[in-house]
Design a protein around this nucleic acid. Structure first.
Length: 422
RNA sequence: GCGUCGGUGGCAGAGCGGUCAAUUGCAACAGGCUGUAAACCUGUCGCCCAAUGGGCUACGGAGGUUCGAAUCCUCCCCGGCGCA
């Protein structure tokens, strides 16, 4: 018996877009849904009560980071991730309201960010062409100083990954079993199998090896989960408390993606994650082709687009049938002074906003004020911009949901994309 | 008034005879950010041009020494400190 149940309420014609209700031990998630990222049990700069008011029903935290700080046992003692971070129905951050749904990522992304990507100017969406900074034409692929001093902080072998803590340099070992064990302690409603998120620049051979390794790790994660869950079920009157999602990889190669989805689909997970690398720019069909892998996944089960958060990418993914999303972009962009608008990104630090007294979205503040806060390093600026961005993305997904129900999703999508990227 | 230290790009502050249109920080201007090493990172930052090169003007002002001066000398102007 799975810890979750997923009911699909409506499917759009032609494509795979759908509306569902995902019932978890800590409450219901209306899909498609966006999960704000709270890596270290904190959506940076925003109180949980505010995150909820913006429309979020679920947040996603990170296993590796919480393992390092404060340690999974502390979170377990607190009563699990949601309770620990005050993610509850209560309006008071310290209230005793019912805990709300949470997700944890397995640490698989850190295999990439602290491994292949460490010291390099690449992101999981960058291709080779983006290795050149357009404003300088200088190759900036490698921070030699950082790399020569530290090398990579994540070293992969077939059994697992050895991490060097970015905090104090200490050594740590992650295996699929260990990741699951930690995620059981963290107690999120949904968690992911330990995977290897690969760099988008790897060769076919490497992507294939990594994918096969991720498949083996998926099996091991699932097995570990079942063993631990079985022991726990006997103590907890048979009520499953956590669902495990398997992650499909395959990098930039269609055949690997398809194979990966198919392989992961057959293992018996409660849901799926789309992992790894896509191309970056909207209009590029790399994401579209990667989304073809959805056809290999069971139509009745929830799918999470890991780290997908660019508005156009979210809509394209929804169109293909992705149900859940998470992304650091709304909070990171906001904190760094960039906000989403219907007409595209706005850099609040730009000179023209210094005396722009028009309202900034529904924040209740003016562009000029928030621009001033960002410029002067006031924390409140990061908070307001992050909240604005989170609301923008949460609204985008909520509107997409409604549009699917109204049979107007494709129009909604086209209209949004025209304005946003036009 | 005497003595002394100092006046360098928006600010702070390096440089102290050629490798200097001049290190660095801040500010400014712009860009980047997609399962958060990220309240971060990158680029630009005297003027002009047929610009991976060249020209011009610049390190308080005016002279001078030198093949060559932000760097040395003289005088002047301005500021800090000390003594009267």
């Amino acid at each position: 018996m799975s810890a979750i149940s997923f009911a699909i309420e409506k499917r759009a014609p032609l494509r795979g877009a759908r509306v569902g209700i995902l019932t978890t031990p800590h409450g219901v998630i209306h899909t498609p849904a966006f999960a704000p990222v709270g890596t270290k049990a904190s959506v940076k700069g925003i109180l949980p009560s505010e995150v909820a008011k913006l429309g979020a029903e679920v947040v996603l935290a990170n296993t590796y980071h919480l393992y390092l700080q404060p340690g999974e046992q502390i979170v377990k003692e607190a009563g699990g991730l949601a309770k620990f971070m005050g993610w509850s129905d209560s309006s008071s951050p310290l209230g005793s309201g019912a805990a709300k749904p949470t997700i944890t990522d397995s640490g698989g992304f850190q295999v990439f960010s602290l491994g292949a990507a460490f010291g390099k100017k690449i992101s999981k969406f960058d291709g080779m062409r983006d290795f050149v900074n357009p404003s300088s034409d200088k190759p900036v692929i490698f921070d030699e100083e950082v790399a020569s001093q530290h090398g990579q902080l994540a070293i992969i072998d077939d059994e697992g990954v050895s991490f060097t803590s970015h905090i104090d340099g200490s050594l740590h070992r992650f295996t699929p079993e260990r990741s699951v064990e930690i995620q059981h302690a963290l107690g999120a409603d949904i968690f992911f199998a330990f995977d290897e998120c690969t760099a988008p620049t790897e060769t076919y051979e490497y992507q294939k090896d990594a994918m096969e390794r991720t498949h083996r790790w998926a099996e091991r994660s699932l097995k570990a989960h079942r063993q631990m869950e079985y022991a726990r079920l006997r103590e907890n009157s048979g009520v499953a408390k956590q669902a495990i999602f398997g992650i499909a990889q395959g990098g930039q190669f269609d055949d690997l993606r398809k194979l990966s989805a198919k392989t992961i689909a057959e293992m018996g997970f409660d849901g799926f994650g789309l992992g790894g690398s896509f191309s970056k720019k909207y209009g590029d069909d790399s994401l579209e082709s990667a989304l073809q892998m959805l056809k290999e996944l069971p139509d009745t089960m929830p799918v999470h687009g890991l780290g997908i958060g660019e508005p156009g990418d979210i809509l394209a993914s929804i169109a293909a049938g992705v149900d859940l999303f998470d992304c650091v972009a709304p909070t990171r962009l906001g904190r760094h002074g960039t906000i989403y608008t219907k007409n595209g990104l706005v850099h609040l630090k730009n000179e023209k906003y210094r005396n722009d007294f028009s309202p900034l979205g529904e924040s209740g503040f003016t562009h000029a004020y928030v621009s001033h806060l960002i410029r002067s390093g006031e924390m409140l600026g990061a908070t307001i911009a992050s909240m604005h961005n989170l609301k923008f993305i949460l609204d985008l997904v909520a509107h997409a949901r409604q549009a699917i129900l109204n049979d107007t999703f494709e129009e909604y999508r086209a209209d949004f994309v025209n304005k946003y990227y036009g």
